[in-house]
Nucleic acid binder design. Structure first.
Length: 387
RNA sequence: CCUGAGAUGGCAGAGCGGCUCAUGCAACGGUCUGUAAAACCGUAUAAGGUAGGUUCAACUCCUACUCUCAGGA
């Protein structure tokens, strides 16, 4: 096969974890991969070379945001997103479907000053969006999304789907599933060159719906699969992973890369990888860095492997953010300094904290990959979660 | 030395002759999972420079003193 897009190089013997490579037009993605989120065409506060130095192969840009700002006309002037950002590696774009959830009536923000539900309306054709920046109205359906993603030029595209909230009635979840399936077919009609389109499995926490969706999506000629609507932070954790247990046996039989949308606490990563997930994207390392959370293995599972650098106990602390960490931040600066920068909301804080956290994630994935090829993935996992 | 302004919680800083006295920062706790997040939420503590006076009642009005700041000699 001349155009191989995915190759598994090793399988773990005790779990469904697998190590592999996704081949893209802009280079390789080593899997399992962590995919940071760069919503507005930037992994906030980092330059492309800094991202790469964190052992990160690929990151996520959001089509919705690009459509409004800067607009596709601007991207066209640069040929594609890679040129625009000066990022030479692989890229993924989200379809915009997630914003119907994040900006819609069931969005995760319960903050009274940022009511967003008036910005998005969803129907069987797609979503009507109103720009929060200039009030401009825009319709995004499956066609519009893929056309936009073609122009953006990412290496991996997401099909346009409806992300559901939790809790949700089965009737409503079925509706979202039917829309997602209908839209999946429409997305596939677009001709793509050197771009991999992933189909998204929906079905909320309902066993039969997830099975139905996994079956439907997996039988379509997508380059890879993604599992959506499990990162709403409201559903019980066991249900999140139940969804993987239901759907992965079907998806894994195709030898195509599988992405888990929106998942990214450390424990979640280990569990997901052990079940067969090849890539996951999440906001955790970058957003939490900006909120003062520094990842650190010693903080342990009960603290979600992180601590709050802004706390008074770190004033003047002359140790590095994490013992043994080789990242730029840890090599050059102390907790006490970061504590100071954070309290002053100095710009340098955001960059240094993001560099450390992203290194933490990038290096963890590297260790996970190595452990899979060395046959010691379970040992690594147990060491982190229960050691 | 003169003139003027001022003195409020750990800090900064409003208002008010009378309810458990604003707000911000700091403290403490919480949230965040395909990013309108450099965000948001909650809790507790805590004051009236000193000495008098007026008043039913003073952090708020008056007097003196102390101190601070600005300008002047």
């Amino acid at each position: 096969m001349s155009n191989q897009i995915f190759k598994v190089t090793s399988y773990d013997k005790k779990t469904n974890a697998r190590r592999g490579i996704i081949f893209t037009n802009h280079g390789l993605i080593q899997t399992p991969a962590f995919v940071p989120v760069g919503t507005a065409a930037t992994v906030k506060s980092l330059t492309p070379s800094e991202i790469k130095d964190c052992n990160i192969d690929v990151f996520f840009v959001n089509t919705y945001h690009m459509l409004f700002r800067p607009g596709l006309e601007v991207i066209k002037k640069y040929k594609n997103l890679h040129e625009f950002m000066n990022w030479k590696g692989p890229l993924m774009t989200d379809s915009g479907g997630f914003q119907a959830f994040s900006l819609g009536e069931h969005g995760p923000r319960n903050n009274p000053i940022s009511q967003t539900d008036h910005l998005i309306q969803i129907n069987d054709e797609g979503i009507n969006c109103k720009s929060a920046w200039d009030g401009k109205n825009l319709f995004i359906g499956p066609q519009e999304s893929i056309k936009a993603q073609k122009i953006l030029g990412a290496d991996i595209l997401m099909s346009f789907d409806e992300c559901t909230f939790y809790p949700i009635t089965k009737k409503r979840a079925l509706k979202a599933l039917e829309r997602t399936h209908k839209w999946a077919r429409i997305c596939l009609k677009q001709r793509l060159i050197n771009q991999l389109l992933y189909g998204i499995v929906q079905g909320s926490v309902f066993h039969d719906l997830r099975m139905q969706s996994a079956k439907f999506i997996s039988e379509l000629p997508f380059a890879g699969f993604a599992i959506g609507s499990v990162a709403n932070s409201k559903e019980p954790r066991e249900k999140v992973f139940q969804v993987l247990d239901w759907t992965l046996p079907i998806l894994l039989s195709y030898l195509k890369p599988i992405h888990f949308l929106g998942i990214g606490e450390i424990e979640d990563i280990f569990i997901s990888v052990s079940k067969g997930i090849d890539s996951l994207d999440c906001v955790t390392p970058t957003r939490l860095a900006r909120m003062g959370w520094i990842f650190n293995k010693e903080a342990g599972l009960k603290n979600k492997f992180r601590y709050d650098i802004g706390r008074s106990e770190y004033i003047g602390n002359k140790t590095s953010l994490e013992k043994g960490c080789k990242c730029f931040t840890c090599n050059n600066f102390t907790k006490g300094y970061l504590n100071h920068l954070f309290r002053c909301r100095e710009l340098l804080y955001y960059r240094l904290a993001t560099i450390h956290n992203l290194n933490f994630f990038g290096n963890l994935m590297k260790k996970i990959r190595q452990s899979i090829s060395e046959g010691i993935f379970t040992d690594l996992k147990d060491n982190w979660l229960y050691g």
